[in-house]
C-alpha cells in the first residue's frame, strides 16, 4: 500500500516536473532570452594584487594610511564609516596624538546636547567616536545626492563579490559609454544624473567619478605617485581593513591552530594504528 501511494505521488511530481521542463525548454529554445546591455558590457573586476591576500597575507600599513588619506579627502565628502572609530586608526600606524588630531579636525561633527540649555548641538569628534558621514540622516543624504543614498563604507569590501578588486576596478573604471553599446541598445543610454561604469552591476551608477585626476590627493614624500590607479588601489586596501580589521590576527591564529591540529591529528592517527594493530578490520 505504501509503495502504491508512493508510486502515484512520484509519478505526479516527476511527471509534472518533466512536463514543466519540456514547456520551459521549448520556450527557451524557440525564444532564447535576448542579450541585454548588462549581459554584454558588464565587466568582471580587474586582476589586482594586494598584500593581504593569501593565507599569510598582511596589510601594508603605509598603503592603509594612503588609503585613509584618500578616504578623508575624497570619499568622506559623502560616505560615513560608522562601524570604525577614530581610535581604531591606531591599528594602521597612527599615534594616539595623531588620532586625537584627526578626530578633532574631522569636518563632520557629532550630534550632542548643549549642556547649558539642553538644546540640540554639535561637538568636535573624539577618538572614541565612530567616523561619521556628513549627513545627519538618510533623508538629508538623499536630498543632497539627487535621491541616491551614499552607502556607509565600513563593510563595503565584504558586501560585494571580490570586494577589494571590485572597489579598485569601480573607482578606476569610469569611462565614456562605448559607442558599440549605444549602437546595439540605444535605449540603454546612461540617464541624466547617472554615470557609466562597466564594473557596476547595472552599468550606470549615481556616484560621479570620485577620483578624476592624478595628483588629486597629495601623498607625502617617498610615496608612490598618486595616480588614479594608485589611489583606487590604496583606498580599496583601506576599506578592506575597515571591513576586516582582524585579518592579520586571524591569519596568525589560524597558522598556529593548524600546526597544533596537524601534530595532534598525527598523534591521534598513530594511537589509532597502534590500538588496532592486533585487530584485522
Amino acid at each position: 500500500m505504501v509503495r502504491l501511494i508512493a508510486a502515484i505521488v512520484g509519478l505526479f511530481f516527476s511527471g509534472w516536473l518533466l512536463v514543466s521542463a519540456v514547456l520551459g525548454g521549448t520556450a527557451y529554445i524557440s525564444e532564447p532570452p535576448a542579450a541585454t546591455a548588462e549581459s554584454l558590457f558588464h565587466k568582471h573586476p580587474k586582476e589586482v594584487e594586494f598584500s593581504f591576500e593569501g593565507p599569510l597575507g598582511k596589510y601594508d600599513r603605509a598603503q592603509l594610511q594612503r588609503g585613509f588619506q584618500v578616504y578623508k579627502e575624497v570619499c568622506s565628502a559623502c560616505h560615513g564609516l560608522a562601524q570604525v572609530a577614530f581610535r581604531d586608526l591606531q591599528q594602521i600606524g597612527y599615534s594616539e596624538g595623531a588620532v586625537k588630531k584627526i578626530a578633532a579636525d574631522w569636518p563632520n561633527q557629532i550630534a550632542s546636547i548643549d549642556p547649558a540649555t539642553g538644546e540640540a548641538a554639535t561637538r568636535k569628534a573624539l577618538p572614541t567616536d565612530k567616523i561619521a558621514g556628513p549627513y545627519p540622516n538618510d533623508v538629508a543624504a538623499r536630498a543632497a545626492n539627487n535621491n541616491a543614498l551614499p552607502p556607509d563604507l565600513s563593510l563595503i569590501a565584504k558586501a560585494r563579490h571580490e570586494g577589494p578588486a571590485y572597489l579598485y576596478s569601480l573607482l578606476s573604471g569610469y569611462e565614456a559609454q562605448p559607442a558599440e553599446l549605444l549602437k546595439q541598445f540605444p535605449e540603454a543610454k546612461t540617464p541624466n544624473g547617472l554615470h557609466y561604469n562597466p564594473y557596476f552591476a547595472t552599468l550606470n551608477l549615481a556616484m560621479p567619478q570620485p577620483l578624476t585626476s592624478d595628483g588629486q590627493v597629495t601623498y607625502a614624500d617617498g610615496n608612490p605617485k598618486p595616480t588614479v590607479d594608485q589611489m583606487s588601489k590604496d583606498v580599496a586596501a583601506f576599506l578592506t581593513w575597515a571591513a576586516e580589521p582582524k585579518l592579520e590576527n586571524r591569519h596568525r591564529t589560524g597558522l598556529g591552530v593548524l600546526i597544533f591540529l596537524l601534530m595532534a591529528t598525527g598523534l591521534a592517527f598513530m594511537s589509532y594504528k597502534s590500538i588496532w594493530a592486533d585487530k584485522k578490520h
Binding site: A7, V9, F13
Partner: peptide, 11 residues
C-alpha cells in the same frame, strides 16, 4: 533533476 529525485525514492 527534481523529477529524478522523486522518481528515485518513490518509483
Amino acid at each position: 533533476a527534481a523529477a529524478y529525485y522523486f522518481a528515485h525514492f518513490l518509483i
